[in-house]
Simulated assay, not measured.
Amino acid sequence: MRKELHEGNRRSWNEATVAHNSHRGDQVAFFHNGGTTLHPEELELLGDIRGLSVVHLQCNAGQDTLSLARLGAIVTGVDISDTAIDFARNLSQQTGLAATFVRSDLYEWFQEAAASRQRFDLAFCSYGAICWLSDIKTWAKGVAAILRPQGSLIVIDRHPVSRMFDWNGNRTSPYTTRGEVMSSEEGVGDYVAASGQGLAGGEYATGIQDFVNSHPSYEFSWGLGDIVTAVLDSGLTLTTLREYLYINDSPPFANMIASEGHWSLPPDQPNMPQMFSLTARK
């Protein structure tokens, strides 16, 4: 494990999480009023999860985790950030949506869960999670170890092709680094503020302005082939692989067009995948 890099990310996420949630308004009221942060794409992939045991990997501050609980699942959320897990636990208590939240380095949690024979019907991994994984093969093996027979993995995230380009469409990042770290002295940014209403999950609040993170962060670029191969090598059987020519919540590039809650490139520009999803079964 890249423990020192993971710990650096923990510190960076602790600081960023405070800024992120400062923009999300009254989240208790949002959930009391029936709100959900899951998109139609996730709901389609999940299907009926009532009564299933679900682990939400890299759950952040728990909004998606509690949305899974609202669907009737027995949910555990795991994240490395102390601040995020504290927030998630408080939100669970205040909304009455039951979920278990665990503060842990994900790779350490995989080892502990496998050793204590914790098993789940479904592992869920979504939006902005894959790029924080320092070892995609060990991650996939960890997922396979904590799934029950016939259990499933569901991943939906930004497409690695889309991640190569900056706001102005310039190619600035590699498609894959195959485990080589990409450091950022700026740390985890306030992408919730940048998205405006897109990631608020309810009413957007002004919150913290001009956020500057004092802790650097460390990301990893994994290509679609890296991810799929790791899943297959773990012994899981791939059941679906989809690419989406649009993205949810907020645009990653200038001049994108909003339509039905999605953001797409203008029709006069060549298209490219913005998100991908995969499902696999043990």
Rank of each mutant, 00 (worst) to 15 (best):
S217M: 01
T239K: 04
Y244F: 15
D226F: 04
K141T: 02
T138R: 12
G235M: 03
P149R: 13
F220D: 00
G198E: 01
Y218N: 14
W222F: 08
L232G: 05
L224W: 02
S214N: 11
I156P: 01
S173N: 12
T177L: 10
R158G: 15
V143G: 03
D210L: 10
L241P: 01
R158I: 07
R148I: 12
D166M: 10
T239N: 00
A193R: 13
D190S: 10
D233M: 12
V181A: 12
G201Q: 09
T240N: 14
L153I: 04
E186G: 15
I130H: 03
A145Q: 12
T172D: 08
T138H: 07
G235H: 08
M182G: 09
W139A: 00
G189D: 11
P160V: 07
L238N: 08
E186N: 14
A144S: 13
L199W: 09
P149A: 09
D157T: 10
L147Q: 08
Q150W: 10
S184K: 09
I156K: 13
S195T: 05
V188R: 00
N213D: 07
R148K: 15
A193C: 08
M164L: 05
Y204H: 08
R171K: 14
V143L: 03
A230W: 05
R171W: 09
T138C: 04
S221N: 12
S195N: 08
R158D: 12
A129R: 02
V161I: 15
R171G: 04
Q197F: 02
I130K: 05
D233R: 12
S134A: 13
Q150D: 15
G198L: 04
C131P: 12
I130T: 14
N168R: 12
G128P: 00
I154A: 04
I136Y: 00
E219A: 04
A129C: 13
I130W: 05
D190H: 10
D233H: 14
